[in-house]
Write a protein that binds this DNA or RNA. Structure first.
Length: 644
DNA sequence: ATGGGTCCT
DNA sequence: AGGACCC
């Protein structure tokens, strides 16, 4: 999906081997690149070595992908009306189309046959799309578009007497139509799986990847038909392909298998499992028991996972809320960047905080967001109103760069109330960021870092990840804060005491960082950071160093690494989308039609050819600046406004 | 591993 | 607050 989005921004990438880079790692690669031997998640070095022609794009900034993810989500939701649509990550959706299909089939009863086939009526897509998007024709005699499981069902239906249900056929055509909608209106290709539950839909959706869909027609009614088809499908698979079988679960199961099965078996197949062969679904079901699952994995979870081995899954499609539950931003640091003194830590936290506040304005403020992501009800007057108010802020730090730390190990987090004044859009963002550092973030960082004995000795912190999250998004505005959060005036009361405390903490860190040398001009004062501090804090720090602020010309950068440059390079740069970026194409969607009726997930990648009537039709005028723009580049143009 | 997310304990 | 899972 990332490659597909990049191709919408830069069509010259179409058809070429493209890799998306995040730090030293290849986050994903186009199918062309995969054909040349490049794997997802391999190191950059390995990728370049295996495929010298690989074109790399940096994908550390997710803004573009979030934007298309939102658009696809909104498009699918609007097409499906009240049907639940659940997002899984940025590029997969589950859809429970039970009600829609049921209504469709009910309507069919009192409709006479039509030469064009059957009309499937949809919810209105949205006001920018042609009216014929309120439904589509399909030919029920074509059975299901794309691949079908079991394979012979289309041809041998008459023999078997097993024919796909009318509902799964309708769902399959619906999936096909939605995929067409996403391609034609957004320019992203996709694959889909259609089945009677989430797990099976997701599973079959991954079977035929670029731009295909797969329908598993059998209903989990415990019939012999269902059992045999699903076992044939699932048994040979690595259990990791089932949702919920993650690394811990499989490790637990493997430990049990290698420990308890080996002593009393000579089965070569079992011996194999001890080394590296994957645990298959069939092996687990045949050699383990439900009771064992419950013992090993917990009562509830064990039951659920055990049922999954038979393709049984009752998980509902949970409608994803319009706004996420948390919004977070993070950066990772290697050995070169990740050895920081206290002021370095604060500097990185400030950069991240500023990025986070920018994102909150884009995603939570109505009137300030990228057009098309959420619709603005009255373009004439900009309301600029917060749609959600996070109430907590959390700082997470992962220390250490050693190879052998387990995934997610060493992460520590602390959270605090989010000060209400961050919502004041009249205050410049950088000031609000700095206030957040002062106000809870530096204290949270201290709580996490100053517990490390080692760091106290060296005055250096070994840091590999910093993450800042806002959580508990509320619809109702918080109580109005009593001011002074941003004020440089000293006021009486608790808030001024807190502030004062934090200031002195910053000053101390500086002194320690310079090996407690005499505070002087030549000592370890970080001028770059000093300039970043709000003037009142800066004065306090200087006072601790015994420096008269008037001796310094802080407006003149001591070196050319001015702070605003570094902020821009580290975080805002990639968000500045060129106004003349060309058009689009692409991604992966997984989506799903669920339970009593079909589910489908899907994923896929860009494709090259024609995506688009809509995309290439004509010229339109930008609502914001009046520029006349080709339709296909309007998204990028608007993103340009949003990012500036 | 990256830069995100969700839910459960 | 951390841990498991997902992309």
């Amino acid at each position: 999906m990332y490659v597909a989005c990049e191709r919408l921004r830069n069509p010259s990438l179409i058809g070429k081997p493209v890799g998306v880079q995040q730090k030293g790692l290849l986050a994903t690669a186009s199918y062309e690149a995969r054909a040349l031997g490049v794997d997802k998640l391999c190191s950059l070095r390995e990728a370049k070595q295996r495929c010298p022609s690989l074109i790399l794009v940096n994908g550390e900034d997710l803004t573009l992908y979030r934007y298309y993810s939102r658009r696809v989500f909104n498009l699918v939701r609007s097409a499906l009306g009240t049907s639940p649509v659940e997002k899984l990550g940025m590029d997969e959706l589950f859809c429970d189309v039970t009600d829609m299909v049921t209504e469709h089939l009910a309507e069919l009863k009192d409709t006479s046959p039509h030469p064009r086939g059957r009309w499937f009526s949809l919810a209105e897509v949205d006001r920018t799309t042609p009216s014929d998007n309120k439904g589509f024709w399909y030919d029920p005699s074509s059975v299901c578009p794309g691949y079908i499981i079991p394979e012979d069902i289309a041809t041998a239906a008459a023999d078997n007497g097993v024919t796909p249900s009318t509902e799964i056929i309708a769902a399959s055509h619906l999936a096909n139509h939605i995929r067409h909608l996403v391609l034609s209106q957004i320019g992203l290709g996709s694959s889909a799986g259609i089945a009677y539950n989430k797990t099976l839909a997701k599973l079959v959706g991954n079977l035929h990847k670029p731009h295909q869909q797969t329908t598993l027609t059998v209903h989990p009614g415990a019939t012999d038909e269902y059992i045999s088809v699903v076992r044939e499908l699932l048994d040979p698979l690595d259990a990791r392909k089932l949702m919920g079988f993650g690394s811990k679960v499989l490790h637990t199961l493997r430990d049990h298998v290698t420990g308890s099965v080996r002593p009393f078996t000579t089965d070569l197949a079992v011996e194999d499992r001890r080394s590296d062969t994957p645990l298959t679904v069939g092996f687990l079901r045949q050699h383990l028991t439900k009771q064992l699952f419950c013992t090993l994995l917990g009562m509830q979870n064990g039951q659920k996972l055990w049922d999954l081995l038979d393709g049984k899954d009752e998980e509902p499609v949970k409608p994803s809320p319009e706004f996420p539950l948390t919004i977070s931003i993070e950066d990772s640091f290697d050995e070169r960047r990740g050895i920081l003194d206290w002021s370095g830590v604060l500097r990185e936290i400030e950069i991240l905080t500023n990025s986070l506040l920018r994102r909150l304005e884009i995603e939570l403020v109505d009137g300030g967001e990228i057009e098309g992501v959420r619709t603005d009800p009255s373009p004439s007057q900009p309301p600029r109103k917060w749609q959600r108010y996070p109430s907590q802020i959390r700082l997470t730090i992962r220390g250490g760069h050693s190879r052998e730390i387990a995934y997610n190990a060493n992460r520590e987090s602390r959270s605090a109330a989010l000060p209400v004044p961050v919502f004041d859009l009249d205050v410049p963002r950088i000031e609000r960021s700095q206030a957040l550092i002062r106000q809870p973030l530096s204290a949270l960082a201290k709580q996490i870092l100053d517990k490390g004995v080692e760091s106290k000795i060296t005055e250096k912190y070994e840091i590999s990840i910093i993450n800042i999250a806002v959580t508990h998004l509320q619809i109702t505005p918080p109580e109005k804060a009593i001011n002074a959060y941003f004020s440089s005036e000293t006021i009486i009361g608790e808030s001024s005491m807190n502030t004062s405390h934090e200031r002195s903490a910053i000053g101390v860190a500086h002194i320690n960082g310079s090996k407690r040398a005499r505070p002087s001009h030549a000592s370890g004062l970080d001028f770059g950071m000093l300039r970043e501090l709000p003037p009142d804090i800066r004065e306090d720090v200087l006072r601790e160093y015994g420096i008269d602020a008037s001796e310094l010309d802080l407006e003149e950068p001591p070196n050319k690494q001015s702070k605003s440059n570094s902020v821009s390079a580290a975080n805002t740069g990639p968000e500045d989308i060129p106004a003349d970026s060309p058009s689009e194409r692409i991604p992966e969607i997984t989506w799903n039609l669920q339970n009593r009726t079909p589910v489908s997930p899907s994923t896929s990648d860009a494709e090259t050819s024609s995506s688009t009537e809509e995309i290439e039709t004509g010229v339109t005028e930008c609502e914001l600046c009046g520029a006349v723009i080709f339709g296909w580049s309007m998204d990028a143009h608007k993103a340009y406004h949003a990012g500036s």
